[in-house]
Structure formats: C-alpha cells, structure tokens
Simulated assay, not measured.
Amino acid sequence: MQTSDITDPIFLQAVEAIDGGDTVLLQKLITDNPRLITDKLSTTEEGYFKDPYLLWFVADNPIRHEKLPANIVAIINLLVTEIKAKAPGIAQQQLDYTLGLVATGRIPRESDMQIAMMDALINAGAQPGGGIGALAHGNTEAANYLIERGGKLTLGVAIGLHRMDDVDRLLQTATADEKLAALTAAAFYGMADMVKFLLEQGVGPNGYPSPNSGFHSHAMPLHQAVWSGSMETVKLLVKAGARLDVADKIYGGTPLGWAEYAPSEVGSEDALQSFTEIAAYLKASSNN
C-alpha cells in the first residue's frame, strides 16, 4: 500500500501526521475523530496489510517512505494511550500485530529504531512472538530481542542465533516440520555449519516448511541456500540429496533458476561471482 492509495481524507491526514512526526496534529485528529483509533481503514489491499488500523502505519511495513520520523516512539506511545482509552477491547490485537510488523520490517531496522519501537510496544502489553518471522526477514537482532523479552524459543530461531545449548535441547522434542524449518532458516543465512549439523542429525533436505512454521514456506532449503550465496551450503544440501528439479511455490523457479536470477538483484562483483559459480555447479550436478 502507498499513502496515495488511502481514499479516506481524515485517515490520510492521520497517516501523514505519523509520517511527519507531527504529534500535535495527530492528537487533534484523534480527539476530533475517535474512529481513527477504533476503526480499520477499508481497503482493496490483499495480504498482510489488508484493512489496517492506524497504529500499523508506524512500522512503514509495507514500505512507503524508506524512513521513519525521529520521534516514532513518541508517536507509538501517543497512539497506544489513545487505543487503551478508546478501544481497550481491541488493544491487544493492535499491539501484537504492530509488534510483528516492526519486528519483521526493514525500515525500522535500517533506521536504528527497531528495538526501541519493539520495547515501547512490549512495555505497553504486546506479546513477544518466537522471533522466527523476524529471522525470516533478516532481523536477527529483533529475533534475539523478542526471546530476551519472553518470546518462545523454537529450534529454527535457536539455529539462526547460534544458541547451541538450546539447539541440542530443542532438537530432542522438535517435530519434523520444526526441523525442516530450522534447516531452511540455516540455509537462508548460508550457515554451512548449522546445515551440516542438522543434516547429520537426520533432517531431510527436501520439503517446504509449513505456513505454520513462521518461516518462508514457499521454498525448499536448497532455494534458500542458493539465495544466500553460500556455495558451501549449496554443496552440502546437494550432496545430501536435495532435489534440483523442484520449483518454489511463488515464482516457479528451480534452485538453478534462482541462481540465474539472483545477479539481477545484487550489485557487488563478489556476489555476482558467487551466484555464477553456484549456477555452474547446479548445472553440472543436474547432468550427473
């Protein structure tokens, strides 16, 4: 969603006040229009940002501006105070979902305000999740912080954060899907040591993590290893029997297809070289 997609003029003013860090205007708009706190914005948007509450816009996730106002924590605190006063029955829902948007967002991380924003939401009552969503979006610091604040530690997150004592413990009771999600997470980050460890523990390299796992469920571990640019990780999975002919569920690409597409998304010569070498290796492996 872009700001220009908002057709409700009052809601648009409130979103622009958030984006501009204008607490005075935001407070006036809410005082004059309590529905800004109690009602969702009706949209034609599909996906995770369909019919958003005003609070959701603090995360810039989906990305609209590539930046956040310097006083975004004050904006959050203002909105939370109003929500608890005017809509206590839906406060928990708003807080929890906004925390997820912040924890998985790129702009909060790049703005160096992700932890402060998460802190404000958790202090206000948001329930910390297990961190797998944050991990799936490259936000390792956010994932670790959620665990520190009481989120449930899962095998995938323990693997992603290299918490080996926890990995050994959680592996004993993990389901097959949790193990697959953990392997996919390790592959996503190009953690060859963790991939090797899980394969040695008998985790199979083929399959898609379930949507309930919280990690990317559209691709297999080998796809994610390719995208990480780690040749060592790719080789470990291929030698363990990872299928080379299976397409991901969104783009319809095989691991080789991902390797061939990746250079269009990277800028450095080193990354380009890595993907070129991975593509050549996968082609050779397919012919054997």
Rank of each mutant, 00 (worst) to 15 (best):
I159T: 07
Q273W: 02
A70E: 14
R169I: 04
E260W: 02
M231Y: 13
A85Q: 12
G257H: 01
P88R: 12
A158P: 13
Q172E: 15
L41M: 10
A17N: 04
G267A: 07
G156Y: 05
G138K: 06
Q201I: 10
E200V: 00
A14K: 09
E232N: 10
G204S: 11
A103S: 15
R109Y: 06
Y189F: 12
T38W: 08
I90E: 13
N123S: 09
P128N: 04
K249N: 15
Y261W: 11
V102W: 09
N139D: 02
Q201N: 13
G252W: 01
G229S: 05
M191C: 06
I6D: 00
A87W: 08
L183E: 10
H218S: 15
I6W: 08
M194D: 09
G207K: 06
A219P: 07
Y145P: 03
K86G: 00
N61T: 04
A176L: 12
D168I: 06
T254L: 11
I115P: 07
G151Q: 09
S274E: 10
N139F: 00
R163S: 05
V195Q: 12
K235P: 00
L55G: 06
H223L: 11
E46W: 07
T140K: 15
V195A: 15
M117P: 02
E200Y: 02
L155R: 07
E265I: 03
M113Q: 14
S217H: 15
D22Y: 06
K235G: 00
G160T: 04
T44H: 08
W56T: 04
G252L: 05
L79W: 04
D22H: 12
M220P: 05
G156P: 07
D22K: 11
K67V: 11
G267M: 04
N206F: 00
T276V: 05
D96V: 01
N212P: 00
E178L: 05
Q13T: 03
M113P: 03
L36N: 02
L155Y: 05
I10A: 10
A259R: 05
K249C: 02
A240Q: 09
T98P: 09
G156K: 03
G131H: 01
I107M: 02
P9V: 02
A134N: 02
I115T: 12
T254V: 10
G105T: 01
A87L: 02
L95C: 07
A186S: 14
A85N: 11
K283Y: 00
A74V: 03
R243A: 13
L41I: 10
